[in-house]
Design a protein around this nucleic acid. Structure first.
Lengths: 165, 165
DNA sequence: TATTGTTATACTCTATAACTATA
DNA sequence: TATAGTTATAGAGTATAACAATA
């Protein structure tokens, strides 16, 4: 026993994983609060983003991207449609499915959503300078890669766009 | 218009907050899977940790630390008690409340839990070397501080030990 | 009267499977 | 028969408030 009293190098603090979980939950809460101000749930937001990127997809396809089951999309799309944000257009090729489209109002709200997401990120990372943000972003991407998540977040097998910002 | 085509410096990628949320959810899932192997839910794990650190607290106190409502603790403690991990001891000073204690089995399981938590963190951060882990840990602590969470994770107003690792 | 623990009730969210209409 | 969407039902999880025992 040569080392007498090191300043606690013992366990490399299992707090980092813990912190990551806590911060993730906090970020999700904050995001939910922010999008609520423009009348959206995080899931709504995910749907709008997916439809913005991939107009015309079916409900099943959207369900897959949101990581949920098709039956749950019915009420979600009903709601978005009732609010005039999304349209259900019967596919001409295969009249069993819909081709979901953003309306003009939906597109406008998506733009607002992007602003909100930017503000959210800025608020969340306000204590970091630009360099630190970059480093954090790279480290998180590295962790995500190790976890089998794409660098953008979603897992390869079941990309889940419902777990938002 | 002097700048013609910069390589996309436009938005500083709102993906970092998004990634943080996704990784947090992923870490929570993984942790839940790991503790399930020793028969615990994340909430159980939080209760054991809290009782390890603060033996003799009441159910209300424990509820506060777990960020839940007292009524929900009844079933939780019932379960832990039935499995012989926790004891309800009537307080001699104030016979309205219990002084919750870990049993020997509970203490042993808590030790196992710590091993599991270490393995969890190691698995999660496996793509990072020691330096990177340290940097990540510091950056996350900084973000947590800005978010009003203590450096250990929990929010000052309602530290939530149920959102685990 | 106030407080701890408890129970009862209702509400939300979700998953599963049955149903329809198209193919 | 197989698939997209829908509906119905049941289950888990949670919050709220009423209740008994003790202070």
């Amino acid at each position: 026993m040569t080392v007498a009293s090191a300043p606690r190098p013992e366990r490399p603090s299992p707090r980092t994983a813990f912190l990551l979980t806590q911060l993730g939950a906090h970020a999700a809460d904050r995001f939910a609060a922010r999008v609520a101000e423009i009348g959206l749930t995080p899931r709504d937001a995910g749907a709008l983003r997916a439809l913005g990127r991939s107009p015309g997809i079916s409900q099943r396809e959207l369900a897959g991207r949101l990581g949920t089951v098709p039956s749950r999309l019915v009420a979600l799309v009903d709601d978005l449609e009732n609010r005039g944000l999304v349209e259900r257009v019967r596919s001409a090729k295969d009249r069993r499915n819909y081709e979901l489209q953003l309306t003009d109002a939906g597109t406008a709200l998506l733009a607002q959503l992007r602003t909100v997401a930017d503000a959210h990120q800025d608020g969340l990372l306000k204590t970091l300078d630009d360099d630190e943000r970059l480093v954090l972003s790279r480290l998180l991407a590295k962790v995500a890669a190790g976890a089998g998540l794409g660098p953008d977040g979603h897992p390869g097998y079941a990309r889940d766009e419902s777990r938002h910002d």
